[in-house]
Design a protein around this nucleic acid. Structure first.
Ligand SMILES: [Zn+2]
Ligand SMILES: [Zn+2]
Ligand SMILES: [Zn+2]
Ligand SMILES: [Zn+2]
Lengths: 155, 155
DNA sequence: AGTGTTATGTTATCACATAACATAAGCAAT
DNA sequence: ATTGCTTATGTTATGTGATAACATAACACT
């Protein structure tokens, strides 16, 4: 992640989130906004209690339900994603359209990259059709080493 | 799941597991074997504490680490899979060869079907190559309604 | 038998998530 | 403005999943 670029990216995402919620009649309250801000500012996924610790800086009375409620809202709105294999959450990088994405989780640097491969989605979709399975939600998470980390160290 | 067929299937899997472990010099101890047996006998994935309750029938002194250690071994040997989006475990239906599989989780009947679609694996593999990502493990889990459940009820 | 290794027993605790109920804030209609 | 409904938040407690740390026992190999 390029230093400096994050902050401006976060601002863009937050503005977009405001517009999206307003258009849907959904209330992006200060607390919810702060949780989204925390997630967008983090280069790595955060656990609910990590978020809680950070949120307390702005909302000292915050408790677990505070965070989980905000996450529930943000997940519904498609503004954040949950990473099942980490029990953690990331801000979505392009929340403007609904999408099923794939996550690449680097076990070395911890970074999570959100991919949106049409071919993967299509192939998975046809495999599901072949089984007669009606999918509600798809989880595709790959753990390994990102390009940068595999270039740095030899093994 | 056809009644009656499960028990014989379980036996086959258990015998296969014994052979595999023996061939690898891995020790399928009675406790580990019992955990595998519990998982194979269940048509649905089981949580670690579900397994614990069942295991206590044979090993009254069993405690959480007992189960988690057995699961760790069985996962390493490729005899069981963990379903990330359920925090639960299932016996593998064909543990004889290493594989990345896809899981179809029915939200109605709870059944989990293990798929091994070559096309999904290939497509995902090429998407990963395109990113320069070296995968260690892949998680593909789809939640929805299975064919049977979607035929039974109209919505 | 002696010794290193692997497996199990035991206790306590950590990490993640939600139930249940009370209070407050937003909002629309009178 | 007051009422009454709905949604959001506060608060306490608890449920659920997983592991740390250390002790003991079983096994394998010499
Ligand atoms: Zn996204
Ligand atoms: Zn990396
Ligand atoms: Zn399998
Ligand atoms: Zn079903």
């Amino acid at each position: 992640m390029k230093p400096g670029s994050c902050h401006t990216e976060c601002q863009q995402v937050l503005h977009l989130a405001e517009r999206l919620c307003e258009g849907r009649g959904a209330r992006l309250t200060p607390q919810r906004r702060q949780v989204l801000e925390i997630l967008c500012a983090s280069p790595k996924p955060l656990g609910a209690y990590d978020i809680l610790d950070l949120l307390k800086q702005g909302v000292p009375a915050a408790k677990p339900p505070t965070v989980y409620r905000a996450l529930e809202f943000l997940l519904q709105q498609g503004l954040v994603h949950r990473i099942e294999s980490l029990n953690a959450y990331v801000g979505c990088v392009h929340p403007d359209h609904p999408h099923a994405s794939q996550f690449l989780i680097c076990r070395d640097c911890g970074e999570v990259r959100e991919l949106e491969s049409q071919s993967v989605e299509r192939t998975l979709g046809s495999a599901l059709r072949a089984c007669g399975f009606k999918a509600d939600s798809r989880v595709v998470e790959v753990t390994g080493r990102c390009l940068r980390c595999s270039e740095q160290e030899t093994p």
